[in-house]
């Protein structure tokens, strides 16, 4: 198995690092080697956050370089666009339809719209799926479960890691009600793939 490089682009507080942790834990439960890392900008919330996950048989480096990501999982549109250069020509992008411009983006005039971000990404890499993750998470009563919806879509499409390990990892990492909602949100993500016969 060649190492699988996954990049998670998010805004601090969206659960990008929790998503990385779930993926890493489930890969280890499956008996695989894993390394993760992160770029926080600073140790606080609401800034750009990038998570790196590498899964394979024997992994050493916890990071990878632009042009080396097999998958880019985006929890926010602008952050996904910012990190698009990480994706391999054959790489794939799964992004939540979540639009949260930063202060500077909001002050820019005219500021780039949701649809402009999507079309710019599509023009660069057509292997892109935009998922109504917030809507799905809101139906479950918690918009914060958006990260687990994206996880479900990723696992549904890639088959990595195996579903039972992901669910086990979620319940090991999260506790109580957030674990319950997260498992449901993850399953909703899986369902979204089959219901819409998605492929990338």
């Amino acid at each position: 198995m060649k190492p699988l490089n996954i990049l998670i682009a998010s805004v601090g507080g969206q659960g990008g690092l929790t998503l990385a942790r779930v993926l890493a834990t489930s890969a280890v439960l499956q008996g695989l080697s894993v390394r993760t890392s992160e770029s926080l900008g600073m140790a606080q919330r609401y800034g750009s956050v990038v998570g790196y996950i590498r899964i394979g048989e024997e992994i050493y480096s916890p990071i990878f370089e632009p042009g080396e990501a097999d998958y880019l999982l985006g929890l926010e549109l602008n952050e996904t666009l910012r990190n698009l250069h990480y994706v391999k020509p054959s790489g794939k992008i799964i992004v939540a339809d979540e639009y949260r411009p930063s202060y500077e983006m909001s002050m820019a005039s005219p500021n780039i719209t949701r649809n402009e971000v999507i079309s710019e990404m599509l023009s660069i890499n057509p292997n892109l799926l935009v998922i109504p993750a917030r809507k799905i998470a809101l139906k479950l009563g918690n918009p914060r479960a958006l990260n687990m919806v994206i996880l479900g879509v990723f696992v549904g499409l890639s088959g990595i890691p195996r579903i039972e390990y992901v669910e086990k990892a979620i319940s090991e990492i999260l506790t109580g009600i957030s674990a319950e909602i997260s498992v449901v949100a993850f399953r909703e993500g899986l369902k979204f793939v089959t219901k819409n016969s998605l492929n990338l």
Partner: peptide, 11 residues
């Protein structure tokens, strides 16, 4: 890949 400039998002 192509690097698109996006306004920064400092914390």
């Amino acid at each position: 890949g192509k690097h698109v400039h996006v306004h920064p998002r400092p914390p």
